[in-house]
């Protein structure tokens, strides 16, 4: 008999999914937000994104090729995703050498030092962003002007600063347009500005079953809950929940950063715990810390709890 029979244990068929396809889906989902950023901030957006992606891919390739000497994995596009997400968390005017430095930290420290894809405990893009924020605070918090109303300050920074200087919430809120917040005419890290584009991307990821609703819904839900309770109790001191959902890293964090596979829990009940933690921490930091924004830190802090969540929050067994 000339035929060769292949033998292996069941199952004998595979589903349509693979790592590359999942990464491509994330990139597709990020495209609308990138388009809005380009429209609002211009060519800088594409340059920063390109430099960030190129630096991330180069860092991963160089580290694997010359230091770790393991298999090369840049082909799965996970470094491209990290590069894009890091860029989304930067001002479009950040000097390019800082972008490249952030990318090196994201991939080198955030990802490869733990063994690469799937083994890193902290979201690599956020590791890069927080490194840059702490190292180059000035450059990282200076944003180009978009509208006359809130020149150069993010809506969250504008509110926090205004409250500090004694202005009332109603005076401050009257200078903001919710439509601008939704569509993206505001200052901020360039990828986070359009809540609408990010929501569309998030819905795409859920339809493609790349992510489930558990993390985004619980992050946004708990943010809305905490800010809503405070707003109802004292509307003269707190902004509305809608304001908090449409500003800062809320949408980018809930749909794209918190849902990062390696750094989020391994079952749906755990995801709920994780998401609620992020939402509550984000609001806590936004309202009562020195920073106007809290999403990045909240995600990184909850990343640290993931092993514990995986250990104690188990999926419900069949019986």
């Amino acid at each position: 008999m000339e035929k060769k029979l292949v033998i292996s244990p069941s199952p004998h068929v595979y589903g349509g999914e693979n790592t590359l396809r999942l990464m491509l889906d994330v990139l597709v989902a990020l495209a609308p937000a990138l388009a809005v950023s380009f429209w609002v901030y211009g060519w800088n957006v594409l340059v920063v994104t390109a430099v960030s992606i190129a630096s991330c891919v180069a860092a991963e390739w160089l580290l694997q090729r010359f230091l770790l000497r393991g298999p090369l994995t840049v082909g799965n596009l996970s470094a491209v995703v990290t590069g894009t997400l890091l860029a989304f968390n930067l001002p479009s005017t950040l000097p390019l050498w800082m972008v490249a430095t952030g990318a090196l930290v994201a991939i080198g420290v955030g990802k490869m030092s733990f063994g690469g894809l799937g083994r890193n405990p902290f979201n690599p893009a956020l590791v890069g962003r927080v490194f840059l924020l702490l190292s180059f605070t000035g450059a990282m918090t200076t944003f180009p002007a978009v509208t006359d109303a809130v020149t150069g300050a993010t809506p969250l920074g504008f509110i926090k600063g205004g409250l500090k200087s004694g202005l009332s919430i109603s005076e401050l809120a009257s200078q903001l347009s919710y439509a601008d917040l939704l569509f993206g005419f505001k200052s901020g890290s360039f990828g986070e500005i359009s809540a609408l584009a990010l929501i569309l991307g998030g819905i795409y990821l859920m339809i493609r079953r790349v992510i489930s609703w558990h993390i985004p819904a619980t992050v946004l839900g708990s943010m809305a809950l905490l800010s809503g309770v405070l707003w109802l109790a004292d509307p003269s001191s707190y902004m509305s929940p809608l304001f908090h959902l449409l500003t800062g890293g809320a949408m980018l964090g809930a749909f794209f950063m918190a849902t990062d596979y390696s750094t989020s829990p391994m079952n749906r009940r755990g995801m709920v715990v994780f998401g609620v933690g992020i939402g509550l921490l984000t609001m806590t930091l936004r309202l009562w810390s020195a920073y106007p924004e809290g999403m990045s830190f909240a995600i990184l802090i909850m990343n640290a709890f993931v092993p514990l969540i995986n250990k104690y929050v188990k999926p419900r067994r069949f019986a």
Binding site: G116, Y261, S264, R317
Partner: peptide, 24 residues
């Protein structure tokens, strides 16, 4: 007829969500 080569676990948790017995 062939098996696909194994790559790194990306911790996507899909195996947990499809398990009909609720295992990990």
């Amino acid at each position: 007829a062939r098996r696909r080569p194994e790559t790194s676990c990306i911790k996507c948790a899909k195996c947990v969500s499809v398990c009909p017995m609720g295992l990990e």
